[in-house]
Design a protein around this nucleic acid. Sequence first.
DNA 1: TAGATTGTTAATCGATTAACAATC
DNA 2: TAGATTGTTAATCGATTAACAATC
Lengths: 218, 218
Amino acid sequence: MEKDSTKISMAVIRRLPKYHRYLKDLLDKNITRISSKELSRVIGFTASQIRQDLNNFGGFGQQGYGYNVDALYYEIGKILGLDRTYRTIIVGAGNLGQAIANYTNFEKAGFVPKAMFDMNPKLIGLKIRDIEIKDIDTVEEYIKENNIDIGIICTPGPQAQSVADRLVKGKIKGIWNFAPVDLKVPAHVVVENVHLSESLFTLSFLLKHCQNESSGTL
Amino acid sequence: MEKDSTKISMAVIRRLPKYHRYLKDLLDKNITRISSKELSRVIGFTASQIRQDLNNFGGFGQQGYGYNVDALYYEIGKILGLDRTYRTIIVGAGNLGQAIANYTNFEKAGFVPKAMFDMNPKLIGLKIRDIEIKDIDTVEEYIKENNIDIGIICTPGPQAQSVADRLVKGKIKGIWNFAPVDLKVPAHVVVENVHLSESLFTLSFLLKHCQNESSGTL
DNA sequence: TAGATTGTTAATCGATTAACAATC
DNA sequence: TAGATTGTTAATCGATTAACAATC
């Protein structure tokens, strides 16, 4: 039933978390069924796109009825890989690393931080919640011994590539990268970037070019 | 020379910060000129796409020569609106808000945090660097009196929309939203989202579906 | 059954890539 | 000048939207 996932486009993949979030909202409102047309209204995609997207993964709907919210929420969660837990480490225990360590929502979703790593001796040994900050020199060994799935890189840009190299040596499976660089890793390691300055600069562009389009009086 | 900016696609706009970053790298390496072909090799876009992208904003290159790195870096900075400063406020002084307040790179790029806001009485009055945390109830007035351009929302999801409403009332120009919701704002207010869980869930999807594609031995 | 809504194919739209004349 | 490389048009590719038969 499921098509070859290698053919799913990134455009579709990046919409899935949004479906997941809105379906949760509907569940919380005790809405049990929804048509692509209604969902279109709340989520902002076209009904056609919603049906196309969902059909990449199987026929979750029922003609004449629509979609069962509970079942669809569960299925999309499964497609996203949210039906399991992931063991993560955070590399870089500065402000951002600590913020992520403290953000319990990720843990609730199944992404459990097991340790943090830093090169600063003043930080090593400290704990954020119950997560210990360890010496970056031990990260490779730690990943292997503790079966870590995901490394979260929160270092400054210049350190990020060498950190990534260490994670790869430890056989990390995926990297969530907050450093403002594009990492070079082997093809079997998945990298997802959060490039904050790129997002901020995009906002800046839009402020400069797209403002006041509809407010002629100012 | 510049085409109507309303016709620039978001795909192009989101590539501009990456050009900017790589051009800075080249500058730092004292590289003064570059062809679209060479740039293609380092940045990973096709040479054709690079020329197409840049030509949306004018002819920055020279036939037979390529592009002047310094001039192009400056021009793209200007296009992105990085040739000025922005007055920002951070709403939500929790871990993420504090991390952003402490991240001086944004300030170096011209995005200057003037104040933070929170509803927690224990935080109000404290300072992060030299940035004071103020009562959220005063935010509308503060924006107006201090000519704030950008509001950075770092609150939990449930508070984000009401915060956005206040920012809009204060006549904020743009919102950088880190809360996991889609804000409803008037068309003249620009919103740029950083949806961290969506990014993390995308990583999760890729881990589940695209792993080991090229590593047959494991 | 009749009405509603999906699953899916076909049409359209937009973005990327290729090609090449212009020109430095 | 000859070689290199842009700017720009045309071709291709992929993603979105529209349409409708299938079916609950």
